[in-house]
Simulated scan of single mutants.
Amino acid sequence: MPRSIPSPSLRIPLEPLTHAAFTPFGTVTSNPSHSPSPSTPGYSSTPLSASVSANQGTATKYAAAAPLTDFYAYLSPSRKPSSPQLSLFVCHPRRLRQLEPVGPIEAFEADYGAEDEMVKRLFDVRVLERHPYTSQTFIPMGLGAEGAHTHYIVIVAPTLPVAGEKRENEERYKPYPTPPRDHRASNIELTYERARPAPYWNENSPQPSGAASGSQQERPRGTGLPDLANARAFLATGRQAVTYAAGTWHAPMAVLGKESVDFAVVQWANAVASEDCQEVELRGQGVGGEGVSVEVEFGDSGEIVVAGLGGVKAKL
């Protein structure tokens, strides 16, 4: 059973999904030639590696478009090896509810549509999850890049610090503490251990992957619960793939619209349930049990509208 935590009544605005805005939580991958112009509200280019010609000159390749990280052998309590997984998620449209509840929120859920009845609706966030030792990439398949009536939203939250956790040093990036040092070893043994050449160490104690020693953005988040007060919600298009960094709290993928969306999902897993995925249920403390929700605003023709830089509204 997932842990249940109290949730204050919070309404999160919907933002455009850009690389810069999403950097604290992971990576957004999209074709640079399809990026919006600098005059577009919320503009942010997607930084990719230098391109090279491929497929006999018929394709352009951008290598290492997003970090794919695996920390199981390095940080998980079991040290059980993981394996790469490619899954298919068929995500069906979610239900929204009216803006102002006057009773239990379940009583006010309604099908997506009927936009002429109200300008705004709410998507209730009831569960957050994280994958402590692996990144997780969602790649939409078959979703029209410019479709006005089917989107997916990405909901994330920072991690709260744990009491006594040393935020100023490297320990902040470790989802779980590393095994305690063996104090039975003599000082001479420890001295020799530190002096052993790298090949010996690599053969006997798995080290982190290249990404594990990379930038802070790629490293696992801490052990704390989600920081609900600073949760954010982003509206994605069919041209964008999303990679959650290891340990990032996020809501299960949410599709808004009239059609289901298929996602190819890439991650690592070792079949230890508590290490592959951790969940918390949000127990709303507001009127009618309202907790964290995302405001979804519709335009005149039913398209979703978001606020970009400077609060300027834009249709996606």
Rank of each mutant, 00 (worst) to 15 (best):
Ile5Phe: 04
Ile5Trp: 01
Ile5Leu: 07
Ser7Lys: 04
Pro8Trp: 09
Pro8Ser: 12
Ser9Gly: 01
Leu10Asp: 03
Leu17Trp: 05
Thr18Gly: 15
Ala20Trp: 07
Ala20Met: 09
Ala21Asn: 14
Phe22Met: 08
Phe25Arg: 05
Asn31His: 10
Ser33Lys: 12
Pro36Trp: 10
Pro38Gly: 08
Thr40Gly: 03
Leu48Tyr: 07
Leu48Arg: 01
Ser49His: 09
Val52Asn: 14
Gly57Leu: 07
Gly57His: 11
Ala59Leu: 02
Thr60Arg: 14
Pro67Asn: 13
Phe71Arg: 00
Leu75Trp: 09
Ser83Lys: 13
Pro84Glu: 10
Gln85Tyr: 06
Leu86Thr: 07
Phe89Gly: 02
Val90Cys: 04
Val90Lys: 12
His92Lys: 08
Arg94Met: 03
Pro104Ser: 13
Glu106Met: 11
Tyr112Pro: 03
Ala114Ile: 00
Glu115Ile: 00
Glu117Met: 10
Val119Arg: 15
Arg121Asn: 08
Asp124Lys: 02
Asp124Val: 06
Asp124Asn: 06
Val125Ile: 15
Val127Thr: 13
Glu129Phe: 01
Ser135Trp: 05
Ser135Asn: 06
Thr137Gly: 03
Thr137Tyr: 07
Ile139Ser: 15
Ala145Trp: 01
Gly147Asp: 15
His149Gly: 11
Thr150Pro: 04
Thr150Arg: 08
Tyr152Val: 02
Tyr152Leu: 04
Tyr152Met: 02
Ile153Leu: 14
Val156Lys: 02
Pro161Gln: 14
Glu165His: 13
Lys166Gly: 08
Lys166Leu: 09
Glu168Asn: 12
Glu170Thr: 09
Lys174Ser: 02
Thr178Leu: 05
Thr178Glu: 04
Thr178Gly: 07
Pro179Phe: 13
Pro180Ile: 00
Arg181Tyr: 01
Asp182Gly: 08
His183Cys: 10
His183Trp: 12
Ala185Gln: 14
Asn187Trp: 12
Ile188Glu: 15
Arg194Met: 04
Arg196Leu: 15
Ala198Glu: 13
Ala198Asp: 11
Pro199His: 10
Pro199Glu: 10
Glu203Arg: 14
Glu203Ile: 01
Asn204Gln: 11
Pro206Phe: 06
Gly210Asn: 12
Gly210Lys: 10
Ser213Tyr: 06
Ser213Ile: 03
Ser213Arg: 09
Arg219Glu: 05
Thr223Ser: 14
Pro226Cys: 02
Asp227His: 00
Ala229Cys: 01
Asn230Trp: 01
Leu235His: 10
Thr237Met: 03
Gly247Arg: 03
Thr248Arg: 00
Trp249Leu: 00
Ala251Phe: 01
Met253Asp: 03
Ala254Pro: 01
Val255Cys: 11
Lys258Cys: 08
Lys258Asn: 11
Val261Tyr: 06
Phe263Asp: 04
Phe263Trp: 07
Ala264Glu: 02
Val266His: 12
Val266Ile: 09
Trp268Asn: 01
Asn270Glu: 11
Ala271Trp: 13
Ala271Val: 03
Glu281Arg: 09
Leu282Ile: 02
Arg283Tyr: 06
Gly288Ala: 12
Gly288Tyr: 07
Gly289Leu: 04
Val294Gln: 11
Val296Ala: 09
Glu297Phe: 03
Glu297Trp: 06
Asp300Val: 09
Asp300Trp: 09
Val305Lys: 14
Val306Gly: 15
Ala307Asp: 12
Lys313Glu: 14
